[in-house]
Structure formats: C-alpha cells, structure tokens
C-alpha cells in the first residue's frame, strides 16, 4: 500500500462517492417515509399485488414466496435494496473499478503513474483500497439513513439486522468491485472494462431471474452472484453466513487476480 497513492485515488473518487451516497440516502429516506401509510393498508395492498404475475416481482429482485409488506425489512427490500440500491451502487462500483488502470492507460497518465519507484502491485492495491473505502462510505451512509428512517417511521430494525445488512451490501459490492478492477487491469479502455463487467452482471441477472421462474432452470442460480445477495434476510438478522462469504471470496480472488495481471501486462498508451 502507498499512502500518497491512496490519498490521490480517494480524492479522485470523493465527489463521485458523495453524490452516489447522497442520492441513495435521499431515496432510502423518501421510500421509508411511505412505510407508515402502506403499513396501515397492508392487507389491501398485498391483495392488489397478488394479482400481478410472478415475473414482474422477479425482475425487481423480489421473491413473491416470501413476505412482502408484512415487515419493514420486506418493504425496504422490495422498494430499495432488492433492485434500485444494488443497481445504483453497482453503476458506481463498475465505473470506478473499471477506471483504476484502464483509464490511466487510456488518458496517457499511466506513464507518470508508473514512473514512480513503487511496484505496480502496491500502486494498484492503493487504488483498490480507495475503492473499498468508497464502497464502505456508500454502504454506511445508506445504513445510517435506513436506521434513522426506521426510527422515524416506525420500522422494526435491530442492530443485528443493520450489521448484517452492512455486511451483505459491502460484500456484494466488493465482489463486483474486484471484477471491475480485474477487467480494468486487463484492458486499456475504461469503457471496455466497464462493458465487460456490465455484460457479466447482465448475464448473472438473467440467470438469476430464470432460475426463479422455472424449476428446470434452477441450476442457473449457481452461475449468478445475485443468488447470494439477500438483504431482506440480512435486515431480519437471518443472513446465512456463506452468502457474504461467497461475495467476499469472489471479490478477494478477482482483486488479487487484478494485481497479478497488472504486474505482468505491457503498458502501451
């Protein structure tokens, strides 16, 4: 790790992190503010929702077999953490992760970046650490917003549930952050790296939806990291330990692979 490199990378990310974190906080608070209204009309609302086809729930990350609006966790999962929150946070992670190497090469700044007497591994690890810090800021501000909303709008959320949610969200973003830095370490254009990871996410998303819709396609869930993403269980304090472990392992593995690939590749600006 290099402190000057970490400081620069963190500063480069600071405004992006600020706007994403702020946007997600506002969204969480806004959605949570509807909870008291929906709670009063819960039965009526669930009756209406049951008329919709299962497919519609699946594409927004909702398992209709599980409770929907019977709890604050179910409500916030359906409205925020099932689809909008991960989609938004993934855009941040993929674009920022894709920039770590490929953007330096693309913009020609890699020649200065790599002319300092520090190994490529340490330079990139510092950038990865800055990305991890950005992820933590986004996750923690969202968690604080959720806790404050639960207190303000009468939602049930335990400290254990909040802790597990932080773990679930962080590990989920770490997995895709690792992939994005790997793609960036292998390519020389940020758009190519981001496109590559975006394509993988899309395929995983499709596999995840299909696996929930048809019994014969259930095996597809093993090909999607979204299967291990379970914020609802986390908010209820019932997160299976192996789910964040899978995400963290993928993140760590791809992050290390990124360091290795970057140390070996040619830099042609």
């Amino acid at each position: 790790m290099s402190w000057p490199m970490f400081r620069k990378a963190a500063r480069d990310l600071s405004w992006t992190v600020f706007w994403y974190a702020l946007g997600l906080v506002i969204y969480i608070v806004m959605l949570a503010s509807f909870y008291p209204t929906l709670e009063r009309q819960r039965e009526e609302f669930e009756r209406v929702l049951q008329q919709y086809p299962e497919f519609l729930f699946r594409i927004f990350g909702i398992d209709p077999q599980r409770v929907l609006f019977t709890s604050f966790a179910g409500f916030m999962h359906a409205e925020t953490f099932g689809f909008i929150w991960p989609a938004t946070a993934l855009i941040f992670v993929v674009l920022s992760g894709a920039a770590v190497v490929a953007q330096e090469v693309e913009r020609g700044t890699a020649e200065f970046w790599l002319s300092v007497p520090l190994s490529r591994v340490r330079l990139l690890a510092s950038k990865q650490l800055a990305l991890l810090t950005g992820i933590l800021v986004i996750v923690l501000t969202s968690a604080v917003a959720l806790a404050a909303s639960a207190a303000a709008f009468g939602g049930e959320l335990t400290g254990r549930g909040l802790g597990q949610l932080v773990l679930a969200l962080t590990s989920f973003l770490v997995a895709f952050g690792g992939m994005a830095t790997l793609a960036s370490a292998l390519t020389s254009e940020r758009s190519k790296a981001a496109g590559l990871v975006g394509g993988v996410i899309l395929l995983m998303y499709l596999a995840w939806i299909l696996s929930g819709l048809a019994e014969e396609a259930r095996w597809l869930r093993y090909f999607s990291l979204l299967t291990a993403y379970d914020p609802q269980a986390a908010m209820l304090g019932e997160l299976a330990w192996y789910k964040p472990a899978i995400h963290l392992l993928v993140g760590l593995g791809t992050g290390i692979a990124a360091l290795s690939a970057f140390a070996r590749r040619d830099i042609v600006t």
Binding site: R107, G108, T109, E111, F112, S115, T269
Partner: peptide, 9 residues
C-alpha cells in the same frame, strides 16, 4: 523520466 506525450492529471 519525461514521456514523449505529456498527459497529466
């Protein structure tokens, strides 16, 4: 080192 095509941040 000074590169041939100077591109800075």
């Amino acid at each position: 080192y000074v590169p041939g095509d100077v591109r800075l941040w």
